[in-house]
Design a protein around this nucleic acid. Structure first.
Lengths: 231, 231
DNA sequence: CGTCGCGTTGAATCGCGTCAACTTCGGTGG
DNA sequence: CCACCGAAGTTGACGCGATTCAACGCGACG
């Protein structure tokens, strides 16, 4: 058993850096990537302000990223699922810009920034993919912004669920039924709503027959109507 | 007079791509950059969905970027000032992802994506700067998200003014006194507030002696207290 | 001089947050 | 294995901040 892992066998490869790299190129990428020790629930992977040495790729599990406001309150800015890359917003000044914490047992790959930079000089495909991933994050972030502004609590939650559903689908999981690894409070924080509102809305959507909610398990019964609410 | 411009003489160079490039490297960058025809107020530079051929750098003036929701309503996601680069969120799939419209007479540089990609293979500094600029946008966007969520109308507006003020300062302009090239409606749209609320808040901040507002002209009398409100 | 876009101000309404009480879940130790 | 305890989630009553609707002022421009 080695501490190396192999992008070639990784089910998340199509979402992650090796996307559109040739087998030989992927092999090169492989040489700089290490497996990170597994995280347990509530373990903190990244502390804001630390020097940026690695990007992380999620292999399994999930995490949340947040900043702290003046009074020490969390501001959740992202949830990370398998295939996601973490750390891009720190490239600007070589420091991580947020805290990142595991929501459940989580496996990660560790990608040294410096090696990545050197390697991307050789591989135009990798360079493009780096830009593509960042561009995607940027777009997602700006879309989210538009989705929070100008939208009611119901629209926000519906949109959150629809987005989550499609992210699970991209990862080869069910888009109809999934587990919310974050708490209601996390969801509320992320959407700028109170816990109580989240709870009430979930009950309400269930009463309307759109969802079936059982603790952390959500089943979307009527994707169409839910998507319509998210508009 | 040539259609070429020169990054060497551009006052925005420190904010833009040539940042930290050597004179020779900047010269190379120069060869691929063209001046774009000036835009008049309300001219639309970019239509969402068009193929991405250029990044644009703002030389003077200002613009807003927005998406359209289902009912054709604008969702303003960004204001662009001199030195800003426009178009990054489209790299993911080779299409512009939003509309971009001039708020006043505006001068731009036009940077062909393809040449930029080729050139960045040669110049590690350019590659780094590209990532830095995107990372900065990403960070700004996530910060903004945190600033809208969980904040009152007053906090949002105060934060908007403080951010704008520091952006003007970075550009060598006064941080105390500046002109809002966007309408109140634009500001409200951007912050997720109604026009009326923006108007009321500006009056209120003026009555408290923090600001002096005269149509589009804003003077910040008490930067400290304003920053405190933005918390 | 009239029109149109933009901005301001007032009054009524409502969505969501806050506070509080209670229930359920999940982990821990006896 | 069950009892216990704290964390997480639910539900109801109430209040406030921001939206909405409406009227009006003002400057730019034909």
């Amino acid at each position: 058993m080695t501490s190396h892992i192999h992008c070639q066998n990784c089910s998340m490869a199509t979402l992650c850096l090796p996307y559109q790299l040739s087998p030989e190129q992927t092999e090169k990428l492989d040489t700089i990537i290490q497996r990170h020790r597994p995280l347990q629930k509530r373990d903190v992977l990244i502390h804001s302000g630390e020097p940026l040495k690695f990007l992380y790729a999620v292999r399994s599990g999930s995490l949340k990223s947040y900043t702290l406001d003046g009074q020490g309150g969390e501001q959740i800015i992202d949830f990370h699922l398998p295939g996601d890359l973490i750390g891009f917003d720190g490239l600007i000044d070589g420091q991580y810009r947020s805290y990142t914490q595991a929501l459940e047992t989580t496996m990660l790959c560790e990608i040294p920034i410096q090696s990545l930079d050197q390697l991307s000089a050789e591989l135009p495909g990798l360079r493009k993919q780096l830009l593509r991933v960042m561009s995607g994050e940027l777009h997602a972030s700006k879309t989210l912004l538009g989705n929070l502004n100008h939208h009611t609590a119901q629209q926000r939650l519906a949109n959150f669920l629809v987005t989550l559903s499609s992210r699970f689908q991209q990862r080869g999981l069910s888009s109809r039924e999934f587990r919310l690894s974050m708490t209601r409070a996390d969801i509320g924080n992320y959407l700028g709503l109170s816990v109580e509102t989240i709870s009430r809305l979930l009950t309400q959507l269930q009463q309307q027959g759109l969802l079936t909610v059982q603790n952390k398990l959500v089943a979307i019964n009527e994707p169409e109507r839910l998507r319509a609410l998210a508009a």
